[in-house]
Design a protein around this nucleic acid. Structure first.
Length: 773
DNA sequence: CTAACTATTGTTTTT
DNA sequence: CAATAGTTAG
């Protein structure tokens, strides 16, 4: 016991040793907060706290598993097994299953994923006869989601004229109706969406004092990781559960709050001290992860934010190398550079593939990276994006499984009732759907009792429907005696799913079959793994719950040595010796959608902070001059975030002649580039290049000068003038001349021109006012 | 009712 | 450019 305390520094030890009471740990990036949480739990247990009385909410299930393993090493496996540890969603899903009947839900309720929810909303919008261009299902979904996360129920919505007005103002006066219908339909289907898992937990704890008491007594000690990313709904759950004993420890870093878009409220962490009596505050400010260069560069970035807690992250580590900045022509080049650089670094420093991460703002950026890595035979793994369980063929199998567990699950039913095609078309489904709404029953029940209602469905179709229901029922019977693997395998075969793909024969079809096989293997592993656990049986419903709430981080592939590719969001909490942050461009990072308000921009900046602080040894920032976006080559300019890092931490790989603001500053009005002002390509023997960075004032002016969007939508390639070598041109000042050569593309397109009087000049076409003769 | 075709529309970020 | 929603012919 004492031995591990020695592994902590003083700042870390203090919160570990405070057994009772409310406390907040402000933990800077890389300051060892997981270690603190782990040891704190171990310490509590060593002081006689029963594992059953500890609730630990983590950001991913993987983090929970890892912590559990580490705790098990200290206190022993049998003890650690009883800890309640996991994400908000998975912990409270568990709780809700147990208490479901109180809320009128079946304990085998389905968890709708985003796609299920959005499809349902789509259907509702259509049924209500609303204009789908006004009521965009994604917008409606996110609106409903944010209501739920703020605990605004349908009832509360209709009692709040302001909200209704706000929706009416955005031309969606009937949003409330959609909300109501959506909630009703979910309830009818015995389904909860992601937000419901939190909302219904609140409802449960509010409406049933005895339930609240039970869990308050159970969870005497509560720990919350990544507290800065909790939303209001989560905040209230934590508050309610910890209210009795007030043994609450929250850990987080306001500088790493990056989930406002899904309702996270940074005020939860900023105001924590007001929520409990006698809150102790601890700060972990020493960074053990990164070099001085990285830590200080990151500090200089986050300094630009106004909203933040007072905290100075520092490190005793070496200076390390500077952050490399490189500009590439296109996203393809960017990929090639990154892949090449990884290759070189791996050789030079004897690193593993797994020591490298490529981080990007949007999932769409992964493709260019993948292509380049594949060409160089560098193994990689993409995290996030379309997860395995969201692939069509996988969702199809899962939908059958869901349906047999919960026949009321309408989204699952609609998905598979006619796939593989069995002659049940849209018209039939519509009829069934209308009947289901009318009789307030599920479609499945309607089909079961087809003969009792006259639905103008012909005999043949009726037969097909009955066959379908009977097939599902046979699966249900099978599920009573067999394990999840056996059931799933039967489903894949008997439904004709596999056959459908086999007859397709294309490479994609074969890949899909392999995916289904992988799913089945996964189920088998799950069954075997779960059988060893005390509170699990390896049932199909447990598997489905796991799948619904699994993040891409959670599944550990028998980890081969691979370069990691992921969004910055997904990278939170991780660390890598070498980190490449790609796509450092305006409108991409910061995202074009996030530049409207200061708050949004600050969140983007925190995101950049998170990205930078993932790096242990060396960070690379890359951006392109033009990049393919929805199939078109679009001009790009460097992200303002590069500018925000103090130059002394940066090492530009490219001459700065074309650096974004340079042409504006160093080019005279006639477009002549002044070469004397070029920045040095590389600092000589480590001396930082002289800073020619424009002042903030200059930048602001420049940004104003720069049109917000492409001025000429047709030609997005910069200069309107089309020139080729050999053209005769006339320049305002230099007179007549002949084009020798054209260089660069887009904004940076230059022409080398031999003037009759002025000799050879290189002009930026963007500025040079040339007339073709 | 199915399958093949055409049109549209979208890129933040995730449990 | 992709994926998917919607349309149309058989």
């Amino acid at each position: 016991m004492e031995s591990y305390l020695a592994e902590l520094n003083e700042a870390q030890r203090a919160p570990v040793l405070q057994k009772d009471g409310a406390m907040i740990v402000i933990a800077g990036a890389g300051s060892g907060k997981t270690r603190v949480l782990t040891y704190r739990i171990a310490y509590l247990m060593s002081k006689g706290v029963d594992a059953f009385n500890i609730l630990s909410l983590t950001f991913t299930n993987k983090a929970a598993r890892e912590m559990k393993t580490r705790i098990a090493k200290i206190v022993g496996n049998s003890e650690a097994k009883n800890l309640w540890m996991g994400t908000f969603h998975s912990i409270f899903a568990k709780m809700l299953r147990f208490e479901a009947d109180k809320l009128g839900y079946p304990s085998n309720f389905t968890i709708y994923d985003t796609q299920d929810s959005q499809r349902l909303i789509s259907a509702i919008i259509k049924e209500m006869g609303l204009d789908k261009d006004v009521y965009k299902y994604k917008q409606v979904y996110s609106r409903i989601s944010s209501y739920k996360n703020s605990l605004i129920t349908v009832k509360a919505y209709f009692q709040n004229p302001e909200l209704q007005e706000a929706d009416a103002m955005s031309k969606k006066p009937r949003l409330g109706e959609i909300y109501k219908e959506y909630v009703d339909r979910c309830f009818k289907a015995g389904a909860m969406d992601f937000d419901d898992l939190l909302l219904k937990t609140n409802e449960l704890l509010n409406r049933f004092p005895e339930v609240l008491q039970k869990y308050q007594n159970r969870f005497r000690y509560i720990l919350v990781d990544e507290y800065q990313d909790t939303n209001h709904s989560q905040y209230l759950i934590v508050k309610a559960l910890s209210d009795k004993f007030q043994n609450i420890c929250v850990v987080g870093d306001d500088a790493q709050s990056i989930y406002a878009f899904r309702g996270a409220n940074i005020n939860n962490i900023l105001n924590f001290q007001k929520d409990y009596d006698d809150v102790k505050m601890y700060r972990l400010e020493q960074n053990y992860r990164s070099t001085k260069n990285i830590v200080e560069a990151a500090n200089s970035v986050i300094d630009k934010n106004k909203t933040k807690l007072d905290k100075v992250v520092w490190t005793a580590n070496d200076d390390g190398s500077k952050i490399v900045v490189n500009r590439l022509l296109t996203d393809g080049e960017e990929g090639r550079f990154v892949a090449g650089s990884i290759f070189e670094n791996r050789m030079e420093h004897q690193m593993m593939n797994g020591d490298f991460a490529i981080l990007y703002r949007t999932n769409a950026q992964s493709r260019a990276m993948e292509d380049a890595l594949r060409k160089k035979d560098i193994p990689y793994r993409i995290y996030g994006g379309l997860s395995f369980y969201q692939r069509k063929e996988i969702k199809d199998v899962l939908s059958y499984l869901r349906l047999l567990i919960n026949p009321k699950d309408e989204e699952a039913l609609k998905r598979v009732i006619n796939y593989p095609a069995r002659g049940i078309g849209q018209t039939t489904i519509d009829k069934l759907s209308i009947a289901a709404n009318h009789y307030k029953r599920s479609i499945f029940e309607i089909i079961e009792h087809l003969d009792k209602i006259d639905l103008k469905i012909n005999r043949g179709t009726k037969n097909k429907l009955e066959n379908f229901v009977n097939m599902i029922k046979s699966f249900q019977i099978l599920n009573q005696t067999e394990d999840a693997f056996m059931v799933a395998e039967t489903v894949a075969k008997k439904t004709g799913l596999l056959q459908e793909l086999k007859k397709d024969g294309t490479p994609e079809g074969i890949a899909r079959i392999e995916n289904i096989e992988e799913l089945l293997n996964g189920i088998r592993d799950f069954v075997e793994g779960q059988k060893e656990l005390a509170d699990a049986t390896g049932s199909l419903s447990e598997f489905l719950e796991d799948v619904a709430l699994a993040t891409d981080m959670d599944k550990d592939t028998g980890d081969e040595d691979r370069v990691a590719l992921m969004t910055i969001h997904l990278a939170k909490g991780l660390e890598f010796p070498f980190v490449y942050i790609v796509g450092m461009e305006e409108d991409l990072f910061p995202s074009a959608m996030s530049m409207n308000t200061r708050t949004e921009l600050e969140e983007e900046r925190r995101l950049f902070y998170v990205a930078l602080t993932r790096a242990e040894k060396k960070a690379y920032l890359t951006y392109t001059q033009s990049r393919y976006r929805w199939g078109k080559l679009v001009d790009a300019e460097p992200s303002r975030f590069i500018e925000e890092i103090d130059d002394k931490f940066l090492d530009y790989m490219i001459p700065q002649e074309d650096y974004r603001y340079k042409p504006l500053i160093d080019t005279d009005i006639f477009g002549e580039v002044d070469k004397s002002k070029f920045r040095q390509t590389k600092p000589v023997n480590g001396t930082p290049p002289p800073s020619h960075k424009p002042t903030d004032e200059q930048l602001r002016k420049l940004r104003k000068l720069r049109p917000a969007t492409t001025p000429e939508p047709v030609k997005d390639n910069g200069p309107s003038i089309k020139l080729k070598a050999g053209d005769e041109v006339e320049h305002m000042r230099f007179g007549k001349g002949k084009v020798l050569q054209i260089d660069g593309i887009g904004q940076d397109k230059k022409a080398e021109i031999e003037f009759e009087k002025g000799g050879i000049k290189k002009l930026l076409l963007k500025f040079a006012k040339l007339k073709v003769l």
